[in-house]
C-alpha cells in the first residue's frame, strides 16, 4: 500500500465518510418532514427553509462569532417558516403543496437577498468529534470526524421512531394524520396539532441548513443546497414515514453521493455523470423493488394529499 494514499480502500471509506458528512442535512429535513406529514400535511417548502437556515446560521455566526448562536438562529427561522405554512394551510381550500412551492421561492429569495453581504466573510465552523482518533490513518480519522449534529440526528431518529408509537404526543399526531374527523371526535383540534408539527418540521430543516453552511461544505453560497431539501422531502415517502427509514435513506443517499468522486480518485473515470446519478438510480430501484400494488403505501397518513 502506498505510504500516503490509501488506494482502493478509499472507496468504501469515502462512502462511509460521505454517508456521515453528506447525509446530515437529509436526516434533519426528512425527520422534520416526517413529523409534518404524519400530521397529515405536506410541506414542500423545506428546500427554501433549508437555504434560509443555511444563510441565517452563517450570518449570525459571522456577526457573533459563535456557530452555536447561528444554529439557534437557523432553527428559529425554520420554526417561523414552518409555523407560517401551518397557519396558512389551516384555511379551507388552501393547497399545502402549492403553498410549499411558493414558500420554497420565498425562503430561497429571502436567503439570497439578505445573504449577499455574507458570501465574502468566513464564519466559524461547528466543531466535530474525532471518533476516529483510535486510528493512525489520517483518512480514517477524517472520515470519522463526526459532527455533533449527525449524532443528534441519529438519536432523534430513534427517539421519534419510539415516540410515534409509545407516547401520547405520537398518538395524537398519528390520529390527526389519519383522520381529521376521528381526531375531532377525540376532542383534538387537528389544525393546532398540524401547526405544531409543521413548526417543528421547519425548525429541523433550519438546523439541516445550518449544518450545510457551518460544517459541510461549510460555507455560504447561493448554490449551497442544489435541491437537497426537495430530495429530503421525497425521501420521506421513500422511507414510508418511518423515522428510522428516513435515517437509513439519508445515509444511503449520502453514501451513494460520495461514490462518484471516490471512484474517480482511484482511477475509475469513465461515465462519471452516471456514477453521480447513483443515489437517484439506487433510490428508484429500491422503490420499484419494494413497492407493490397490493400493499400500497403501508404507513401512509390517511389525510396526506399526496398519497390519496
Amino acid at each position: 500500500m502506498d505510504a500516503t494514499g490509501i488506494g482502493l480502500w478509499g472507496v468504501p471509506l469515502a462512502i462511509l465518510g460521505g454517508a456521515i458528512r453528506v447525509s446530515t442535512p437529509f436526516i434533519f429535513v426528512s425527520l422534520g418532514e416526517a413529523i409534518t406529514e404524519r400530521s397529515g400535511r405536506i410541506n414542500l417548502g423545506l428546500e427554501g427553509t433549508l437555504v434560509f437556515g443555511a444563510m441565517s446560521a452563517y450570518a449570525v455566526a459571522v456577526m457573533t462569532g459563535s456557530p452555536w448562536l447561528g444554529l439557534i438562529a437557523a432553527a428559529f427561522a425554520g420554526l417561523c417558516f414552518g409555523l407560517f405554512h401551518g397557519w396558512i394551510c389551516k384555511f379551507p381550500k388552501v393547497n399545502d403543496i402549492a403553498i410549499g412551492i411558493a414558500l420554497m421561492l420565498f425562503g430561497s429569495g429571502l436567503a439570497f437577498f439578505f445573504g449577499k453581504p455574507f458570501i465574502q466573510p468566513s464564519a466559524p465552523d461547528l466543531p466535530a468529534i474525532p471518533l476516529g482518533a483510535w486510528s493512525d490513518i489520517p483518512q480514517v480519522q477524517a472520515a470519522l470526524d463526526v459532527n455533533m449534529l449527525f449524532l443528534i440526528g441519529a438519536a432523534l431518529a430513534v427517539f421519534l421512531w419510539w415516540a410515534f408509537r409509545n407516547t401520547r404526543a405520537g398518538l395524537i399526531l398519528r390520529v390527526v394524520g389519519d383522520s381529521s374527523d376521528a381526531a375531532r371526535a377525540m376532542g383534538l383540534n387537528p389544525n393546532t396539532v398540524r401547526l405544531a408539527a409543521t413548526g417543528v418540521g421547519g425548525a429541523l430543516a433550519g438546523i439541516g441548513g445550518a449544518y450545510l453552511s457551518l460544517y459541510y461544505p461549510g460555507s455560504w453560497t447561493e448554490g449551497i443546497s442544489s435541491g437537497q431539501g426537495l430530495m429530503a422531502v421525497a425521501l420521506v415517502i421513500f422511507a414510508r414515514w418511518n423515522p428510522l427509514g428516513c435515517f437509513a435513506a439519508a445515509l444511503l443517499f449520502g453514501g451513494a453521493g460520495a461514490l462518484g468522486p471516490a471512484l474517480q480518485s482511484v482511477g475509475v473515470t469513465q461515465g462519471y455523470y452516471l456514477f453521480y446519478a447513483a443515489p437517484y438510480i439506487l433510490t428508484l430501484v429500491i422503490m420499484i423493488a419494494t413497492s407493490s400494488p397490493s400493499r400500497s403505501l403501508a404507513g401512509a397518513p390517511g389525510e396526506l394529499s399526496i398519497t390519496k
Binding site: 421525497a234 425521501l235 455523470y273 438510480i281 428508484l284 422503490m287 420499484i288 413497492s291 400494488p293
Partner: peptide, 28 residues
C-alpha cells in the same frame, strides 16, 4: 399504477437521472 410507486418521488428522481443522461450523451 402497476407498482404503486409514488409518482412525486419517482418523477423527481427520474429528473435527476435524465439530466445525468443528457450530460453523459452530450459530452460523450
Amino acid at each position: 399504477h402497476y407498482r404503486a410507486v409514488n409518482e412525486t418521488i419517482s418523477s423527481l428522481l427520474m429528473a435527476y437521472i435524465a439530466i445525468a443522461l443528457m450530460n453523459q450523451l452530450v459530452e460523450g
